[in-house]
Design a protein around this nucleic acid. Sequence first.
DNA 1: GCGCCACTGTCACGTCAATGTCATACTGTC
DNA 2: GACAGTATGACATTGACGTGACAGTGGCGC
Lengths: 229, 229
Amino acid sequence: MTAKTVLIVDDEAPIREMIAVALEMADYSVLEADNAQDGHAMVVDHRPDLLLLDWMMPGTSGIELARRLKREGATREIPIIMLTAKSEEDNKIQGLEAGADDYITKPFSPRELVARLKAVLRRATPQGVEDPVAVEGLELDPVSHRVSADGRALEIGPTEYRLLQFFMTHQERAYTRSQLLDQVWGGNVYVEERTVDVHIRRLRKALGERHQHLVQTVRGTGYRFSTKG
Amino acid sequence: MTAKTVLIVDDEAPIREMIAVALEMADYSVLEADNAQDGHAMVVDHRPDLLLLDWMMPGTSGIELARRLKREGATREIPIIMLTAKSEEDNKIQGLEAGADDYITKPFSPRELVARLKAVLRRATPQGVEDPVAVEGLELDPVSHRVSADGRALEIGPTEYRLLQFFMTHQERAYTRSQLLDQVWGGNVYVEERTVDVHIRRLRKALGERHQHLVQTVRGTGYRFSTKG
DNA sequence: GCGCCACTGTCACGTCAATGTCATACTGTC
DNA sequence: GACAGTATGACATTGACGTGACAGTGGCGC
């Protein structure tokens, strides 16, 4: 999973800084805006995964921005956490009605902030249902996260699992090592291309005699998953 | 399940008391709040199985609270019975439109109250939730809230019980720690993901040698309950 | 009200599977 | 046979998971 981006909209620089530091420690990528207008622009431009929005700000208030974002289809899905200095229940109600997903009262600890943020992101990122794939008695079930050959469960490591899943959903097509690294390892990691060979070997080993012919070497290019040949 | 929890929201203490006594006699567990704000908070914190909601209250009215609860996904499923001193038909309409599941006119007898409450709960309790589940001699009975292995009762904590119940009703499926937190702890708690590990361990310990193989680690992903492998 | 106790969430530490890299052996092609 | 490309086994490192300890909390009986 790549780092989630969080946009902080608050007119007070010190508060923004404090939050930014806390979030960066927790491996989030942080954007900042000191008013609702800039905030709105940054939402549109950078599509953050979550908004931290100050309740009271000069000019357009946080609650107004929240309402606006929730009204537009393109930004409606972005979760919002409201920050407020007041602890009155009414604000919470108003905030939630404006479409905020959670709400934190100042002062708050960085720990609490990160915890709530995690929880909101967790809820907001639904996991799509996936169908099992099968070929020649080899079956991969994303739901139970299992691979079986003719009904018997296979011992397979995480990387080999992802590699096999990619192959089974992209059959009959040759991929270069570099393409496999992008697709299976993720775009922004640096590993040697030769490492792919090693995992191909591990995958073949895991598949056993019965199925290793499905993972084919394409000399001079890379690898392919195929039932033919 | 354990005793059902009923939250009474009414500003008049004597009425709350009367209801509370009647419900406790009928083996319900009772929570009380004397205004809509506190009521809202208690719903979020304690997740009662049913709400008894006074129609007229100072501040936010019962009907307003009902509307709000039915709007939020997390609380939408909780059935609500409205209490009102007025017997006008209009109120009934309004109440039902706000999402109330039933409606009782004061004065009412404790007998009537309990009867309606039972009826509403019966309707609201999804089929199957109350049925015991069993696998390989491990049995979980939601009615008596007990777990037994080959007939002998097991020592098991509340959280482990819920975790096991979730697993037994969702077998052969890998869950991430996040998903387990949402499903077993509830969506609005802020807990470290690694805490799941600890409870998994406690659950395994409670299950003993004989059954702990059912709770499987899916490395790099999370956990799974399965009778295979 | 008070102390006791079960339960919970968090941390620190230990362990072991998983990973990426290398050196070496092998294979196909010209 | 020479060369480039690929397979394989070994190895150090990393990081995920298991585990025991501990402090805080709330419920419960006295």
